[in-house]
Amino acid sequence: MLRVTSSSLKSGAAALIIFATAPPASGHEAWLLTPSEIEALALTPVPFVFASVAVLGPAAGLALLAAAVALALEGRWATIEERASPWLRGLVPSLGAAVLRVGLAAMLLLAATGGLPRHGTAPWTQSTLLVPDMQLSLAPGWDILIVVQVALALILLLGIGTRLAGGVLVLLSGLGLWVFGAEFLSYAPHFAAPGLMLMVIGGGAWSADALMRHDAPDPLTGPAAEALWRGARILVGAGFVYLAVAYKLTQPTLLIAILDHGDFPRFGMTYDVIALIMTGVEIVCGALLVMGRLVRPVALVILGAISFLAVVLGETPLFHANLYGALFVFALAGARAPGPRPSRAAWRMA
């Protein structure tokens, strides 16, 4: 019981650390707003639902209840998963690897060339590191990262030495923290995680790696693979919890302004309540990913949510191709590393 309580205390402590370390970061979403929307935002008070324990307490209780029900049904869901599992996991070394590689390659190439600028910046004028906000012109002396990103993009696109490229992506995410400081915390976990996943999966069936061996190299197996996979899962989940706290829970008026700007469907609710639900879903889903519970359903929920938001806001999917890839592979593989490709017999049994 003592150990169980300690997990509760640790998670609480983690939440407080996020509060303490949240930088005045500027998410790219802020750039969507027009000058008049920004002017109105300057005078908008924090909504009552985000400023009152009397509301947030019961809301947290409801979120906990929903999560508890989902966890109670985990066994039933697992039975369904078990049936589809060989087929789904069998797609990881082909389709999963390709989605992950190509999405990351596109992001790297566009970041290096300034082809995916943040709003208000002319295309092809500002090279960035991984994401539109991290302009390399703000980090003198790091122009070499343009070359590194282009090379990494080409390597990933072709699928040559993919496991090594995955490792380089992890290092690049860490380097981003060194170069840009705490601002990069919003992005680093969600790029390091796909890097770890690539280290496990490799280039997959549709890669130069596979062509040169005349076969698809199987994903890594064993304790090292499981540790890397767990690391990827924790990074993706913790990244979501961090973003939910740093941007949504503590800057709700920005989220609400963005929903208003995109004319987000109200579903009969106010934007204040929708923002609160979005925040809760992101925190709970992120925490479940960290704990390795309900990984496939959670991956599908987040994939659906970010796709819907991107469509409503008219954003290109390339802004979040790293996340689409990582979540897609989690939806295929689940909580555990994908393991070797299943035999045809296993597929038939499934």
Binding site: A15, L56, G57
Partner: peptide
């Protein structure tokens, strides 16, 4: 344990955010 961990996280946030 997962429910208790979530309870700790959500309670902390519900208290700290306001």
């Amino acid at each position: 344990a997962p429910v208790l961990a979530l309870a700790g996280l959500l309670t902390s946030l519900a208290v700290a955010a306001p």
